[in-house]
Nucleic acid binder design. Sequence first.
DNA 1: CTGAAAGCGCTTACAG
DNA 2: CTGAAAGCGCTTACAG
Lengths: 338, 338
Amino acid sequence: MKASLKSIAKDLNISPGTISRVLNGKAKEYRISEATVKRVKAYAQKVGYTPNLVAKSLQASKSFTIGLILPDISNPFFSTMAKHIEQQASAMHYSILLMDSDEQLEKETKALQQLYSRKVDGIILCPVGFEGSHYKEQFKDMGIPVVFVDRYLKGIDVPFVSSNNYKGAYDAVEFLIQKGHKTIGLIQGDQKLLTVNEREKGFKEALQDYNISFNANLLLGNGFNEENGYVSMLQLLKEKNKPTAILCMSNQICMGVLKAAKELQLNLPQDLSIISFDENPYAEYITPSLTTIKQHNDKMGAKAFNLIYDLIQDQKSEDPSFLIDTEIIERGSIFDLL
Amino acid sequence: MKASLKSIAKDLNISPGTISRVLNGKAKEYRISEATVKRVKAYAQKVGYTPNLVAKSLQASKSFTIGLILPDISNPFFSTMAKHIEQQASAMHYSILLMDSDEQLEKETKALQQLYSRKVDGIILCPVGFEGSHYKEQFKDMGIPVVFVDRYLKGIDVPFVSSNNYKGAYDAVEFLIQKGHKTIGLIQGDQKLLTVNEREKGFKEALQDYNISFNANLLLGNGFNEENGYVSMLQLLKEKNKPTAILCMSNQICMGVLKAAKELQLNLPQDLSIISFDENPYAEYITPSLTTIKQHNDKMGAKAFNLIYDLIQDQKSEDPSFLIDTEIIERGSIFDLL
DNA sequence: CTGAAAGCGCTTACAG
DNA sequence: CTGAAAGCGCTTACAG
């Protein structure tokens, strides 16, 4: 039989209230006698008392739990974020209820309901939907704070933490230009995503700042997946004005590009330079080793937790959204034209 | 203000008990009049009633939550497992409380306590410790079912699901032998792990079955990490009787091997053939493309959930432990000597 | 210094 | 067919 305040109270002939008070370190505050404090602590120790957190949650209407909804936890990009969120959370005595929306809006909606029912104190969400209004509707009556991570939306007033996608793309293009590239292709993720729009903007502005005219034929694709990378790459190589370098908006797009390059027996990076968003542990061992735009999703995760944590403490927090700079990890996939 | 049974009861002038009964689909059972059923349902719908699961958990002493403790959620090996566990769980209306032990026994212990306090219905654990007795002590009074996943221990009666590590290693060596290799190195993970022992056994027995004498100098290493792969590889190449092929016990070990090979400018796979445990999405694009021993951790995850689920339903379940066969994914890192 | 009581939101055996 | 009551394990304002 597990010990409860009640059982201890009975055994010790002290009221449950008092037991609660000493076990919660409120002995001083309530001026409880040294004697009883000692007795209670010793006995609790002896019977191995552990507080029932669900009872505590019910009475406090606070669960010390936060919900985390990710589109694909098996993707290292998200799982490293999850790791850092969990790390921060457990340091602050919060637990994580994890849900995988599998990029499906329906599952996400269910997850949100579930989390609400479970009375989490806050939610960190990487949304799979595009419409702010859709979410606004859902969050409206929940009455619990929400924070977006990685992806975010306009038309809804939810703080977010994301990479500085604009700058990431800008820097990448600038980097390419500095190596002498002037004809640069861009393979995009889903165009409904704000993060994708930001990157596109960075791409275009960098070209502009360096007086390179933008060729719309070199901007294509519409998805973060490998298939899109593959198809777009094939398309790109058919252009009369073929790119000498290519910027991939994700890991998986890059894999599709690599696949196409392999099939076509391109000689990388001489025939084509590649730079891609998202770092990966194998980048070093691919041929050529991959120059990447690393997103600091460890920081993103930690920051997302801190944000939701602050929000839980006191709702006030003016425009707490946060952009984290990316970093170019230079390896061997960019050919120096100069 | 969120609706509760009580608030609805008050608004409708019906007792909370009755509200509870109709909302839980027990109207028939309690022969509640069609009229009230309709009223209640309509009103609950209107005010958007959602049950408070923490209250429900408290009263039922059942939380429909399971705890998942993994040594490193950022590792794709574990995160794909997590994904499939979550998928199964949510299909059965269970939620996952995720904890990352970060390969530290201390964090694992805390996680276990936390989960116990949170009254999860069961725990899926990939243990970082080695001693059965250590865990036996901890699980003894918890009174909630536990299942090991991937790693398991002797000296403790806890069901587990893992890869068939013995067979995985055996098959790999056999595969190598069939390509004409006779001098085969093995770089191990942590030797205190049963899974590592099993693989070692498979390695040795395959050699034996093919009448190849075992050379203890070719078996080395003691950790799943990259560093160990690197150091062991260097060591291995100093042998008078250098291996023509090498079996790595993990992804990360393999990366260390690749790193060393690159530094030494080995010509792979001619100079050295490589086969490694753990599939990875980049295996195709590494040079040479990597032949791997794939662990089906999707199945492992799903099975682990099913196991704990059964255990939660009724404790009986005789020797439910489960080994899942691995699969060799043949690519280009094995040189055919024949 | 400590206890009795009420309440967090639910469910269910007991009555009628 | 439906209500009142007790209880899940906790905490805390109120008394004394």
